[in-house]
Design a protein around this nucleic acid. Structure first.
Lengths: 188, 188, 188, 188
DNA sequence: AATGAATGAGGATTCATTCAT
DNA sequence: CATGAATGAATCCTCATTCAT
């Protein structure tokens, strides 16, 4: 069960496609298998189950996000610039993997407790990163904590809006959100 | 099937309690019935099904929210003050019905398409209200639209955070969010 | 639980009406109660249950049929005339209580074993009567037995046909059946 | 979901066995599955539901009956002979598939509206065939129509009788019915 | 006698998961 | 590795029946 394998990647891609259309509960393992042009049983060769498959999607997205953020961190520069670049990096990843982002940010909440636990954990790790950077920019711990979560929530909602009205300019909206928070945090 | 009846209220209360713990899909009608100390069949005397019960919760919360906002609207005052009071009114309702708010804002996403359609509609109605007020405060239509949704998303996330760490001060966090957006919108 | 009572009669009438429209299984006790303008519980004051109510309908129809046949039997006359009059008497009752006849003849078969047992018993009692008369008219026991049942079956089917196409002349069809059997039995 | 498959045939056979004992409503999908030594879910791999399974039985019997009648039709011969052979063909099929015939003719009446509609349609198609042949034999349209239905009804009843008293000679009784109708129609 | 809210056993159906091929 | 037929636990909902008022 190698973490990387063409088949495994295909399955995850298929899963993103189907999950993003129907959501976690309304999607059957059969549909994912069909989308990937394999038999149902094959899914279980690469994932221990539907939940594991979903968890893998979460991990994939957050892996990419964390990677982007940490890559940015290694660069020197003042705190505000670093924060700005972190946020940009995150948004860039999310916009690049739009469907995946929508699945993870919107479609998964309220699913299985096990799933939510995992999502929460990964969520927290990521939020803490932002909290740190926000504090370095001079925000109080309380403001930083709330700010980080609020920003994530705002972005999630925007993805939900876009999911319903694909004609809207997701990129422009994400930018609008950034502007609001930047000013809101008094960093403008 | 009167819209108001002690039994019906009890069932909705029980439903909020169970849904907020397990989410829509992981909650069985049996569990709701048990929580309300009635038999399964009784649920169907007051609601046409599990979905209808959930929809009733959504409608209850949004009914209260809309009522609070519209009540505020009838008062005179300048646009900025009215907006401020609208936001306050919403938060006040959400804080008052914390569990219900958590169920509707967090636990229902990604449930049945039918549910999500209903939620979306009600969501939209409410967002439009805010968009109007934001525009009256001088924001461009684009900023207003994104701003309204972002604010709702930020609040939702805060509820999710609080759900996991009940020790946090929900009210303070909601206030923090308001401050961020207020400044973000350039209304401070 | 008097066998006769205005309420009881009303309930049976209502039952005939609803059963004849939807059949035994598709009819709920609630519907019968509503048709009779009483509460559900009231049905159980006059009948031990849905089955008992249906059995009562069977018994009512067969009671009337048997009464008509036996009344005819007491008259003198040759065997063939008596048979002719018996058949006429039966058909007259069935045509008079068309809906009831349809319920008992068509809609009940294939229902609960208990119901079918009862129906069978009453059916048998009645068939035996005809068998006797047919034998008196000179038919062999085998022909008489089969003939009696076949005649009942033919009539039942005609009622089913009429139920589907109410525009058809039930009386004329019943008469047609009589003619066929009369000749078929070699009594013409 | 191939129309023909060993499993599918086994399920239909099991269904005939159980339906013929308990009727449509009193038979649970579980019982059918058990009779076929498979799990409940397996039934749904071959049929879309209990109703579809039953409909398949109806169609199977009528398919065989129609086939037998139409095969006979293609042969030359005078109208009376053809009719005689048609009736013989029908009875032959029914006698060959006794249990199936009992299920369709007796146990299905008064089931679900949807089932009954289907049964009626198929019934009608078949009756029309007989009506045509009867008219070719010189019967008036009215007599032919009633005659066809009466004959089917008579046969059904005989099946019901035989179901209760398996010791009776079904074949002899069917023959007896044929004789009665033959004479009744004045074709003897 | 009459009511109708409440009951809860029972039934059809779904779907994640397994395993023999 | 891959398959997909088979599994059966789990779930929503119905409805005949009861009983406190």
């Amino acid at each position: 069960m190698a973490r990387t394998s063409a088949r495994r990647q295909e399955l995850m891609k298929a899963a993103v496609s189907v999950f993003s259309r129907y959501g976690y509960h309304e999607t059957g393992v059969r549909e994912i298998a069909e989308e990937a042009h394999v038999a149902v049983g094959t899914v279980y060769l690469y994932f221990s189950g539907k939940t594991d498959l979903f968890v893998s999607l979460i991990d994939m997205l957050y892996g990419r996000v964390m990677e982007a953020v940490l890559a940015n961190r290694r660069q020197s520069g003042n705190a505000v610039t670093k924060l700005e670049e972190s946020l940009e990096a995150v948004v860039k990843v999310l916009l690049h993997d739009r469907d995946l982002a929508r699945v993870v940010l919107i479609k998964s909440i309220g699913s299985e407790p096990m799933l939510e636990d995992h999502l929460w954990h990964v969520h927290q790790t990521f939020a803490n990163l932002l909290v740190e950077e926000l504090q370095e920019c001079g925000l109080t711990p309380a403001t930083a904590q709330v700010g980080a979560w609020a920003w994530v929530g705002a972005l999630s909602e925007i993805f939900g809006l876009w999911a319903r009205q694909p004609a809207l300019d997701l990129e422009a909206m994400a930018n609008e959100v950034r502007v609001i928070f930047w000013k809101g945090w008094g960093l403008g």
